[in-house]
Design a protein around this nucleic acid. Structure first.
Lengths: 192, 192
DNA sequence: TAGTTTTTTTGCCTTTTGTCAAGTAAGTTT
DNA sequence: AAACTTACTTGACAAAAGGCAAAAAAACTA
């Protein structure tokens, strides 16, 4: 399997100020990883054991609302970390699913491996914290954007910030992610 | 100044599985802290240096939208941690403000103190991570709730989960937090 | 307490979004 | 290719929420 970790090393160095050799050591602990289109990384009720760097591809996390409809909670694009925080860090059964929309490749470690690194490698400590901070910030930003924008503005925003999603994801995933019905999104799109 | 840290020790033990003596040692590193009603913990453009355990009182974080209106992003209730993640962890100027709604008391540490603990005290490492995970989860949950509920449901949800807020916060803070206008919230409230 | 300011409520009307249902388009399977 | 399924679009109408302005209530100040 293809194991060139340049992209991961580059990603680590982008996220936290550590030496290149530290970054290489961290990357060395990750294992190659692959998913086919529509394949699941995590299904609800499982305990997640993947802390994943997504090198290429598009994924989404979703759950079911009270009516049994799929609600897409988040998209994961390439050159980002992917994990279900609650299940992975608290070792509890997941309420969410994580699914590949396109074929995906990347590198992963397990919870056990992460903890070993976390306690033994100060550089990884900083990396791990930086990732949590980064994702937390993204979640807060998303919150703000969802509350203070109309559906149309939210769509336009997505168009600018994550065009990959619009390109590869079916409309219905995007609609539930934006919190509107399929019909509404279809109409929004019509008015460019 | 009143420095009984029982509540903080209890909070730490609730969040992470460590020994009582570890929790006491962590708590010992925190310093007493007080804010008057309407006083600011953080103003926009400052670099936050407070990692705070709120023992009593109610706070909010807010920023200004494009029209110059205050948008309340989050409320902080007693027995929770308070910090502006972006500014505090990335040492950048804050876009947000944090303000006491009622008089507040608690215990705080600085960024420097946090880092010393983080690298020297394994138990604090786990605590720090658990807090980030906890807050991240809360943010995600809020996201989901904002998108898939009507304003009325969001209000009712707040009513059940954080009644303190409804008791002490003016309506307009709550309205912007829920993403509706003052008028709309006033009408929602009328229909109980 | 009278006057001032801020907060909350209400009415009227508009815009946004949802619901339901039907229709078209596209993708799979046999 | 025909049959079937899933995805997307569109129309007609209903409900949710916003904009604006004025009134009422509450909080603050001199």
């Amino acid at each position: 399997m293809y194991t060139n970790k340049e992209s991961l090393i580059h990603f680590i160095l982008k996220v936290v100020e550590i030496s290149k050799s530290d970054a290489e050591e961290i990357a060395a602990s990750f294992h190659p990883f692959k998913l086919r289109e529509k394949e699941f990384l995590l299904k609800e009720n499982q305990i997640s054991d993947d802390y994943l760097y997504l090198k290429s591809g598009l994924m989404r996390t979703f759950l079911y609302n009270l009516k049994g409809e799929e609600i897409t909670i988040d998209f994961f694009t390439e050159d980002n970390m992917v994990f279900e925080i609650t299940s992975f860090f608290n070792r509890v059964h997941s309420e969410a699913n994580i699914q590949a929309i396109t074929p995906c490749t990347g590198f992963r470690i397990s919870y056990k491996e992460l903890n070993t690194l976390f306690h033994n490698k100060p550089a990884f400590r900083d990396f791990g914290r930086a990732i949590l901070v980064k994702e937390f910030m993204a979640s807060q930003k998303r919150n703000y954007g969802m509350i203070n924008r109309t559906a149309k503005e939210r769509y336009q925003n997505l168009l600018v910030n994550k065009p990959q999603i619009l390109k590869y994801s079916p409309l219905k995933f995007i609609a539930s992610y934006l919190g509107v019905t399929d019909s509404t999104l279809s109409r929004l799109r019509k008015n460019l």
